[in-house]
Amino acid sequence: MPLELEMATAEDAIGSSDRRLVDLVDGLLHHGVVIRGELWLTVADVDLVFLGIDLLLAAPHKMRASGAPQ
């Protein structure tokens, strides 16, 4: 069965109450130029702790293959 397709302009979507379009608009609100890659813990508008998070995630066999201790 062919894929059902609906078109909407940006204005339609912003003014819409269709839940799927609302989700789409809400998803968009966090895009665009935004300062990210940092996290602040804030109490009473005072920034207390800055987290610059760098994570290394890997599947176990990759780590073992590279000679890391098991």
């Binding site: 966090h30 300062i35 990210r36 996290l39 602040w40 804030t42 109490v43 998070i53 995630l57």
Partner: peptide, 17 residues
């Protein structure tokens, strides 16, 4: 990863306590 973690923060990358 950072985007995923940012979900726990607000839009200014602040976890406001």
């Amino acid at each position: 990863v950072q985007d995923a973690l940012a979900h726990v923060a607000d839009d200014n990358n602040r976890v406001t306590i």
